Computed example of a mutant assay.
Amino acid sequence: MTDFTEQDLSDSSFEKVSLQRATFRDVSLAEASFTDVDLSGVRIHSGWLDKVRMTAVEVPDLEIDGQIGRLVVNGVEVGPLVEAELDRRHPERAAMRPTTADGFREAFAILDRLWGETLDRARVLPAEQLHEQVAGEWSFIQTLRHLGFAHACWISGVIYGFPSPWHPLDLPWDEAPVHEGVPWERRARPELHEVLALRRQRRATVAELLERMDDAGLTRQVTSATPFLTDVPDLTVGHCLRVVVNEEWQHRLYAERDLATLAS
């Protein structure tokens, strides 16, 4: 096995080469060209696929899970079709795109109800299973810890401007840059009640913010006080709240999927 670490292989040519089971992490394949390649069983996590073009491909089994903008398959723009089908499957999903203060209050109320149902399903499982990962994804406990980080980052760190809003149980995303003072104890195994206690605190912060929020307040410009998001321009209160709403919605769906697997 050959390791390539911190090397520039730009403009290299690979012909009749086997890269089976190779691992690519923090690698740029921008503007690479693939011809007559076998990508069977490839798994891409946290990838950026802007302006990708695939022609003359055979796709007997392809699954995509992520934020999809423009996606054209055989000349058909399928992005709007996917969005419409997801809204049909999940009637509450349309409320997750709020543009007013009342809309955000409604969105978080819906999320509270849905997460309550999800937690009811989680509580009937053995405590150990809540730490179990399905297909390499976060465990249920890790998912809740990551949502704690999202609240700390976007609400406390940006909207409120706290430079160190972290709790030891907060869990950044896997590819996050390491910063001094930011917790990253992925192997920690707290009990459900510990994580939920922190979650209630974070949810109370959002509730307090929304209680006095009006539509004009959503447009207020904000800047991150933590090491994260410092290069993101034109952040507003509404933008930050939308990110948290999306995080809560998507990760609950992931949790529901994995809880169903664990229960079976």
Rank of each mutant, 00 (worst) to 15 (best):
N74D: 15
L29V: 12
T23D: 11
R105Q: 05
W48Q: 08
A30L: 07
S40M: 11
D112P: 01
A56E: 02
S18D: 15
E83Q: 04
M96G: 10
M54I: 13
K51M: 02
R88E: 07
E15A: 15
G66I: 15
L119P: 01
R21M: 12
A30Q: 13
R113N: 00
R97A: 13
L81G: 02
L62H: 11
A56P: 03
V17Q: 12
L114W: 02
A84G: 03
A109Q: 00
D65Q: 14
M54L: 09
M96D: 15
T55M: 10
A107K: 01
L111V: 11
V72W: 02
R21Q: 13
L49P: 00
G79T: 13
V78H: 00
D38M: 04
L71H: 03
E83K: 05
E117W: 06
R93G: 03
A109W: 05
A95P: 00
V52A: 02
L81E: 12
W48L: 08
S40P: 02
I64Y: 11
D36W: 13
F104C: 02
T99F: 13
R93S: 01
I68W: 09
V17T: 13
A101S: 08
F14Y: 15
I68A: 13
R105N: 05
A107Y: 03
P98F: 09
L49S: 03
D102T: 13
G79C: 06
H45L: 09
G116H: 04
M96T: 09
V82L: 14
D38W: 03
T99I: 07
V78R: 07
R93T: 04
L114M: 10
A122W: 04
D50F: 06
V82N: 10
G103W: 01
L111S: 04
A101Y: 02
Q67S: 11
G47N: 01
L62Q: 10
W48D: 00
R93K: 05
